[in-house]
């Protein structure tokens, strides 16, 4: 069968697909690497839409399918005829190389607020990739727990760089396999396996609109990377950051925000504290509620970037939709 992948910018990529071969496998056999993580119909990373042709789907998680009719997962889709598939990104975002797996050393590990840690890794030099930490702000890495099959995905908080530094903000989940290991066992010098960069939660640099970044808990990490990138590039786009936490003691250190405001003079920030006393420079409420107030006053509807726990993301999406923000202006990542 012939499979045609159609990108958002209308580039057509044709590939041959064997019987019982998934579209994802066929694409990779052809040297094209659509985004995919679990490869088992569960994570939704390889979501797309069938445009023409017939297909069947291997068993998969229905909740992982993207919205809309004829939605598919490339890792589970078995063409039954010639098939045309629409991918949710442009050709330039479609990797032509496999996602690198590398080794990294723990360089620093210290508390960030009361319920998170800051983990800094340094990539070991690789014969083909060298020392560079090459990713786009907003992307994440998969980190494997040494000696186990446990993998976790964490967003990068720093900027792409040439010395191999990877910075993460990781929430300490009581009883969590990886965060528990981080809290109790991990030490400087330990070696981890990392795979990435992964993810499409990146800034639309070409948009003319203002940006509103909404983060909950450690969902702040990719937004921090985006803001640092804007500062580094002297990007003057108006930007508003709404950062939600459960309690004021969960908030990241104020110096982080002060630094960002100094580097990005146009940055407006709002700390939303859901429970208890909000404290100075904070408001009571959820990030979604603060966003609703912000959108009510905004002249032109901004692009919205949201990352956080699933319920918080759902609440923010609902607020954005109610305010009339088009889907094309909403970018989100669930933790």
């Amino acid at each position: 069968m012939k499979v045609t992948l159609l990108t958002q910018d209308e580039v057509r990529l044709e590939l041959a697909c064997e019987p019982a071969q998934t579209v994802l496998d066929a694409a990779e056999a052809a040297g094209i690497y659509p985004l995919a993580m679990c490869r088992d119909g569960q994570c939704g990373q390889c979501g797309a839409h069938a445009v023409a042709g017939t297909y069947s789907m291997r068993p998969h998680n229905l909740a992982a399918l993207p919205p809309g009719i004829e939605s598919i997962l490339l890792c589970s889709c078995l063409p039954q005829s010639d098939l045309t598939i629409s991918l949710p990104y442009d050709d330039a975002q479609l990797p032509r190389h496999s996602v690198p797996s590398r080794r990294a050393v723990i360089e620093a590990l210290h508390p960030a607020g009361t319920s998170a840690v800051s983990l800094i890794l340094r990539l070991q030099a690789d014969t083909t990739l060298g020392q560079a930490a090459d990713f786009l702000p907003g992307q994440y890495m998969e980190i494997s727990l040494p000696g186990t099959s446990i993998r976790r995905a964490y967003s990068l908080a720093n900027l792409p760089n040439w010395d191999g530094t990877l910075e993460f903000l990781i929430r300490l989940v009581p009883g969590g396999a990886f965060s528990g290991w981080l809290a109790q066992v991990a030490k400087r010098g330990d070696i981890l396996s990392v795979r990435g960069p992964l993810g499409q939660f990146t800034v639309d640099e070409t948009s003319p609109r203002a940006r509103c970044l909404v983060g909950g808990g450690c969902g702040f990490a990719p937004l921090l990377s985006m803001l640092r990138q804007m500062a580094a590039f002297q990007d003057t786009t108006p930007v508003h950051l709404i950062y939600g936490v459960n309690r004021s003691e969960d908030a990241l250190p104020e110096e982080l925000f002060t630094e960002l405001r100094e580097a990005l003079p146009q940055l407006q920030t709002a700390l939303a504290v859901w429970h208890g006393t909000p404290g100075v420079n904070a408001v009571h409420g959820t990030a979604a509620e603060v966003l609703a107030a912000h959108l009510a006053l905004a002249g032109e509807l901004p692009d919205i970037y949201v990352c956080g726990p699933p319920k918080m993301v759902e609440a923010v999406l609902a607020v954005a939709h109610r305010a009339g923000v088009p889907d094309a202006q909403i970018f989100f990542e669930r933790l």
């Binding site: 690789d126 014969t127 990739l129 020392q131 560079a132 040439w162 010395d163 191999g164």
Partner: peptide, 14 residues
């Protein structure tokens, strides 16, 4: 300087 840093960090032709 950043171009030079990048060149040093990336392996080059093997």
């Amino acid at each position: 300087s950043q171009v030079l840093q990048a060149a040093q960090a990336i392996p080059g032709f093997v």
